[in-house]
Design a binder for these strands. Sequence first.
DNA 1: TTGGGTCATGAATCCGGCA
DNA 2: TTGCCGGATTCATGACCCA
Lengths: 320, 320
Amino acid sequence: MSIRSKGRIISLAWPDRTEPRAKAFPIVKRLTEDRRGVLFVGDNLTVLDHLIAEKQTGASLIYLDPPFFTQRAHETMPRKGAASEVAFSDQWESLAHYLEAIAARLSRLRELLLPHGSLVLHVDTKTSHYVKVLADGIFGFDAFASEIVWRYRRWPSKTENFQRVHDVLLRYRKDPSIAPRWNQGYEALAASTLKTWGTRKQRAVVEEGHRKRSSSTEEESKGVPLGDVWDIGILAPVSKERTGYPSQKPEALLERLVNVLTDPDDLVLDPYAGSGTTLAVAHRLGRQFVGIDESAVAIATIEKRLAEKGVLLTQVPAGR
Amino acid sequence: MSIRSKGRIISLAWPDRTEPRAKAFPIVKRLTEDRRGVLFVGDNLTVLDHLIAEKQTGASLIYLDPPFFTQRAHETMPRKGAASEVAFSDQWESLAHYLEAIAARLSRLRELLLPHGSLVLHVDTKTSHYVKVLADGIFGFDAFASEIVWRYRRWPSKTENFQRVHDVLLRYRKDPSIAPRWNQGYEALAASTLKTWGTRKQRAVVEEGHRKRSSSTEEESKGVPLGDVWDIGILAPVSKERTGYPSQKPEALLERLVNVLTDPDDLVLDPYAGSGTTLAVAHRLGRQFVGIDESAVAIATIEKRLAEKGVLLTQVPAGR
DNA sequence: TTGGGTCATGAATCCGGCA
DNA sequence: TTGCCGGATTCATGACCCA
């Protein structure tokens, strides 16, 4: 199956499509003591071009949680009294400008991905469809691997609509013809299965070419292979994990991605590092990491978060 | 928020876009004895144009489960011995042709929707994104109401990917400025909530402008307002509900949609009636229904299914 | 309670057109 | 003729839900 069949290429189109320009900030680079973690301060477009030019080793996993096109400025939520400040702006002239910005990042990120690597793109349910069509154009329709649904629970609002309780993560592979990094994950068996079969593996019995019956075996089942709908709670407002940075994602979500899609010592890249969840999880699980963010609030949050784990970042000249 | 901001309209584009032509089958119309249910045999494009021309009363709910662009012919699965036959073909020259066909149906269906009505479009996770961009163009970005995730459980396959265990349903409203048909649905409270609070309703307590604590009230909770991720089992292979028609959807799925989005006596329209799940549920819940299908196998399946509920269809001249 | 029967899977294999 | 490529077919699969 190909979207190019019969030469009819389907793409998103809008008038006056332009290439976004990187902000002219200078890049600042910070490095952990063991040199296994890097944090860049600056426009990620500039930094990505810098990384490509420097021919840095590629990443096994790129996770990005870009702004969601909410047309709002997002503020921090400090624990006590302290004034909130703008963490990042998510205001755009138009959806077209937003898509142009995302597309520019994606095409750079693809270059930084190892052949066995995955890119996971966290998107909003209102815009995911536009982003997917765009990303299909950059990675190829066949490089699309999964639409992962992150289902969470939250305080319900009073609206005449089905409560929105999920986000979408799109996974792409750099090269679908190459075996991917893959450490199979499992989740608990369904209640109905447990009732009938217990935790033993079932075995299909085939007679005369037809499936006749199942029987349970001695072997303990590891559970059911991980699906593409993940039930993971959002961070409780009083959770110890909370940094006060808006749009913070739970570590459990990143943990799954890192465990399944990378091996120890692999490199994890997050170009919208935000509160630093990706970096913290990568470090905890023994992976190398590269984070990028242009927001001073984000950088301060990340440094504090990593420092609490005993990881100190020191400034080095960019280009090392 | 609008995709038209600053006059930059984003759309799907492909070369040589054409308007599909309806098949030249004659329409056959069948009517239930109480005249509250109608079944059309023929190309749904022809039938929809016919319905628009006849200025039939509009629908409160349109549900459609079109082919998924699997590029396969789907066959029936008869219970015992009997030979299987092709129920419907899902083979297309290209994704572009597929999208052209869907777009043509959607624009007609929109005309048949009452102002308070909803259209729910069942799509595949590989093509949903293209279809959503297309449908946004027909209904308007602001008419999009929900991306509903139908999560099911099935036999796992051995693949280095997250198992696909969900389908997507896109809900659009005819007119987002008008109050929709809405009968709030509920689901069971989460296990963690039950443990802490039991089944009593919680009430937020606000003091001095700050949220202080919650307290449980006397009132019994109806549960959590229905979200947009639905955990509904697929039909078991040995289920009594099974008709043998491929791609049959569980009645529980349609029940939710019909209960929430329509009132009794409202009209439910399904232009890809298939095994007749929508019609059967609409009838059982006291709604009027219009079904359309071009497959003789589908029509036979529907007539048998309805007959088992004591609903007989008799042929009448089209146009009544 | 126990066991049957399957899957709009996904991988492996086959096959036919083309160079 | 033969080898390659891609589409189409078939084959192994094991947890799920209902009777």
